[in-house]
Design a protein around this nucleic acid. Structure first.
Length: 350
DNA sequence: CAGTCGTGGAA
DNA sequence: TTTCCAAGACT
């Protein structure tokens, strides 16, 4: 794209943004911390989903200091249902480092920003351009989709190395006077006009500069290869009550899927799984099956599917429980952070 | 690089 | 019902 067209492209794009931009909570602040929070929540997550979480989160943690030393249990509860829970842990670690190492001032350069937990190339660029008005690229899925069409880039956007191509494209096109608006404009364009399917090209402010529109192959771009197949895992889940009416609950390991979230005991069902696996693993004895198969459902994660069959059982504790397991009253359990499938079970208990 | 890490909504 | 996601980062 030649110099004159680049200028026109920028101005049409930013002018459109100023007319049509969505009124979003994080666009009502210039606080780098709040913009940081929004960018973390928005990773792989829809705007409509994020909004209520964002408002509640900043009401609870209005400053970096308030977040830096919050109990992780409370933090995870604030994140409950939003998914990708390591984001919450990394955000807190990053904020804590800014408080302690940078005197609670969010760094304004890519080098320092990128070293903070949870801040990758996109988020660094987003914070720098939106909060600090720095001409830094912020390449996300929207940017790759929009620019793959405008510039007719046919690289496979599923490959990590491809991001570099689009970063260079943004470096070439970005409006150095309004870098934050420019980056957000492409993202809004991708969300509202240049959508994955059925793009609204007739409403597009940069249609005249779009090679894919000229070629008539907008629907063929971007090119994306990778397809993920989800594996299936089958679990028996035991909602176990003792004589005092307390429920057996356990905390997941601090790494991996749903790290540090709480759950009802679950036993993976394989060919080798024995019938008394639950009793042996938790040192309890089932005295009574209160309700066989009182709930049966599946939950689909990004890369795997849980098929769950739930049992409501009365138990007696025989020996010491595993370290991360406890009998707790239902009221206490409702205060613990739990994954969506576990919440579905919890919600039908009285 | 390829796999891991959640969820709810849209086509 | 199935597929593909949506403002990615980490290992």
């Amino acid at each position: 794209m030649n110099y004159q067209y680049k200028n026109e492209f920028r101005h049409h794009l930013v002018d459109w943004f100023n007319r049509e931009k969505r009124d979003l909570p994080w666009r009502r602040t210039s606080d780098p911390y709040k913009i940081w929070v929004s960018e973390i929540m928005l990773q792989q997550t829809r705007v409509d989903t994020v909004i209520p979480y964002y408002n509640r989160f900043l009401e609870k943690y209005p400053t970096m200091q308030s977040l830096a030393y919050a109990p992780q249990e409370e933090l995870l509860k604030m994140w409950e249902g939003l998914g990708y829970y390591s984001r919450a842990r990394n955000l807190q670690a990053g904020v804590k480092e800014v408080v302690e190492k940078y005197n609670a001032v969010v760094p304004d350069n890519r080098h320092d920003l990128s070293k903070l937990k949870g801040i990758g190339p996109y988020t660094a660029g987003a914070i720098l351009s939106i909060a600090y008005n720095k001409p830094e690229h912020a390449v996300d899925g929207n940017v790759m989709r929009v620019l793959s069409r405008v510039l007719h880039i046919e690289e496979d956007i599923a490959l990590p190395k491809t991001r570099k191509v689009f970063e260079e494209a943004v470096d070439m096109l970005i409006d150095k006077d309004y870098p934050g608006d420019f980056n957000q404009a492409i993202m809004d364009l991708g969300a509202m006009i240049c959508t994955p399917t059925s793009p609204k090209c007739l409403l597009c402010p940069v249609r005249d500069y779009c090679i894919a529109f000229q070629e008539g192959d907008t629907e063929q771009l971007p090119i994306k290869s990778k397809k993920i197949k989800t594996k299936k895992v089958i679990y028996n889940i035991y909602v176990a009550v003792d004589k005092q009416g307390n429920y057996l609950i356990e905390k997941r390991p601090n790494e991996g899927l749903l790290a540090n979230m709480w759950q009802f005991p679950m036993i993976e069902m394989t060919k080798e799984t024995t019938k008394d696996a639950f009793e042996k693993q938790y040192n309890v004895q089932i005295e009574n099956y209160l309700n066989n198969d009182f709930m049966k459902f599946k939950h689909i994660f990004s890369h795997l599917t849980w098929e769950m069959e739930c049992y409501l059982v009365q138990v007696q504790q025989l020996n010491q429980l595993p370290a991360n397991a406890h009998f707790l009253p239902i009221g206490k359990i409702r205060e613990l952070p739990m994954s969506v499938p576990m919440l579905k079970i919890l919600n039908i208990l009285n």
